[in-house]
Design a protein around this nucleic acid. Structure first.
Lengths: 194, 194
DNA sequence: CGAAAATTTGACATGACTCAACTGGAGTGG
DNA sequence: CCACTCCAGTTGAGTCATGTCAAATTTTCG
């Protein structure tokens, strides 16, 4: 119920005064979810930006064939939402679902818009956060084009060792854009070549 | 030499006073490039964010095998840079090259940092711009995973008809993550099925 | 312990790639 | 105004990475 982790995270990028912290505290919500629960469902308007205090989530899209495509994971200190839906107030393309019991601090659209005017520094904070996310996202596009699945898996393991421990293999396959069967074969190869 | 197009673009998202416009005008540079020239080269630190007044550019990465991968195009009213390099002041992963004679308005890193403090609204402006770019980038990851190349090409044509007219086919193939030969075959199929 | 979920394995299919040859315009210079 | 070259695009044969489907196995957990 304590928003300290959020404040610590924010203070890495901008300075907030006591008053600003108070203003912010009043406008965010702490919330618990159980494993399996959805924070956002495809088709609904995404109501919150969520900062993860504890737990693990996946953001995924279900395509017209019913296939699930994981676009990102989120663990402690990350943000998650369907940002497209959130900013345009239109139905979400993605689901955000808890893979573990999860605790988040949430900003509703109205609260956040108000906070942007009350604490202009927050524009800067989110600009910085989103810049980084954007850069990472474009890197991933290139990686997907220029490296075979095996390399992408190895890179993933190095880059997110913690996530690899916490999520089932078939979800990692989905994140990498391959089938669970093929990932299994890749792992087999890797094990035999070590 | 006139920064009016930039001001018009900015004013879609935030309001700037006469004074702020003056402050901004003093700190940006108008620059012309010829077809073929590079605004950023892989390995150099990206020195500017560039707003395109006129022309067309590609941003691409050369991988270890010497293959070129186009990550995005930019035409009038778009921004371009290697943002990762620009914000971290580290060597660029990407090249930005003019496909046509091009005119841009440039923000240097120092100028932009100063502008963020002089005109806090600019944090908001860039937050909004980058949010949109991020959403589009993640959509593209999903599209690449969930649709075959033919569908992606058709979508591309619908989404960016102007770009399709202005850039050679082999660059579109690279943007779509396929070879020029395969795109040629796709086009052949499409022509025969209409 | 038993059921459900996750992972593995194998046979076969296919989308996309490679490489090499060919076509067809758009300059350019004699 | 023709011949020459250069670059973009096309075509075809063969190959490879990854997908599909179905069954077997292992792990997880009530």
């Amino acid at each position: 119920m304590d928003i300290e982790p959020l404040l610590a995270h924010i203070s890495h990028h901008i300075y907030l005064s006591k008053e600003e912290i108070a203003i912010l505290s009043e406008r965010v919500n702490y919330r618990n979810y159980l494993k399996g629960q959805f924070i956002v469902q495809q088709g609904d308007v995404c109501k919150h930006e969520s900062f993860v205090v504890k737990g693990c989530l996946k953001t995924f899209h279900i395509d017209s064939e019913g296939q699930e495509h994981i676009i990102r994971f989120a663990i402690e200190d990350w943000w998650t939402a369907d940002m497209g839906s959130f900013i345009t107030r239109t139905p979400a393309d993605y689901n955000v679902q808890c893979i573990e019991n999860t605790e988040v601090i949430q900003f509703s659209y109205e609260a956040l818009e108000e906070l942007y005017t009350l604490i202009p520094q927050l524009d800067r904070f989110f600009r910085i956060i989103i810049q980084k996310a954007f850069v990472a996202s474009e890197k991933r596009i290139i990686r997907n084009f220029s490296h075979p699945a095996k390399d992408r898996y190895v890179t993933f393991r190095e880059q997110y060792p913690e996530i690899e421990q916490r999520v089932p293999q078939y979800m990692i396959a989905s994140y990498l854009g391959i089938t669970k069967e093929f990932l299994s074969k890749i792992r087999n190869e890797l094990a035999n070549s070590d």
